[in-house]
Amino acid sequence: MSLPKTLLFCIFLVLGFSAFSHPEDELIISEIEQGQLSMQDQQMTAEYEAALKRQRMRRLAAMSWQQRFLLFIKAGIEHIIPKGLDHILFVLGLFFSSLIIGSLLWQVTSFTLAHTVTLALAALGIIQAPGNIVEPLIAFSIIYVAIENCFFKETNKWRPLIVFSFGLLHGLGFAAVLNEYGLPENGLVPTLLAFNIGVELGQLIVLFSAAALFWMIRKKSWYRQWVQIPASVMIALVGLFWFIERTIL
């Protein structure tokens, strides 16, 4: 039955321009039948966001795997630069920890390994962690590595292990944004792989840029006092701000 569904209002639209001689009537009739539209900004924004995500998902589902692979590499990079400022700071925190390439490599590798594991587990729905716990902890991890940089000239042997556990946290953070972004139903594993590759590329870009800036001066005697420590303090302060923002505010 569709008697009431097709209102006069609709008929006016259907008939085209010639029928618009009394458009004010349609407005009144639809208000009588259905009441006023309640257009509340907050709700409209939420509806629009949800619709955007549905659109992205449809597009994803229609793509070839190569297109999807490239898209998620791009998404992975974007989630570091420019969107993942907290991850950038963490990686920089690692960079300012050591002057020995070997040590830096160990830390970065364990970080990568860790966040790959949790990202995959969370994306596959095996583990779940609420954002209001993960996000402040990520901020805390930034504070921690930065402060440690100020106290120890060289990293201790536990450092890779600590970095690994922080990496687990960051992986959960990536999973949350990836979930908001939308994952395709089919081909989940290659998609995750692509996203991870993107994240790695993003991290490498951050590291190489930092290296390019500071490599020449790393052996100077004032490097620790005037670069390593002040930079770490800055990073720690930003981390502290985020920590407060994410817990209290």
Binding site: K5, L7, C10, V14, G16, S30, Q34
Partner: peptide, 18 residues
């Protein structure tokens, strides 16, 4: 197809080009 707060109720067809 989906309802939203800035859309009139009901269902209809219309055209953007004849």
């Amino acid at each position: 197809y989906f309802t939203r707060s800035n859309k009139r109720g009901g269902a209809w067809m219309s055209s953007f080009k004849g």
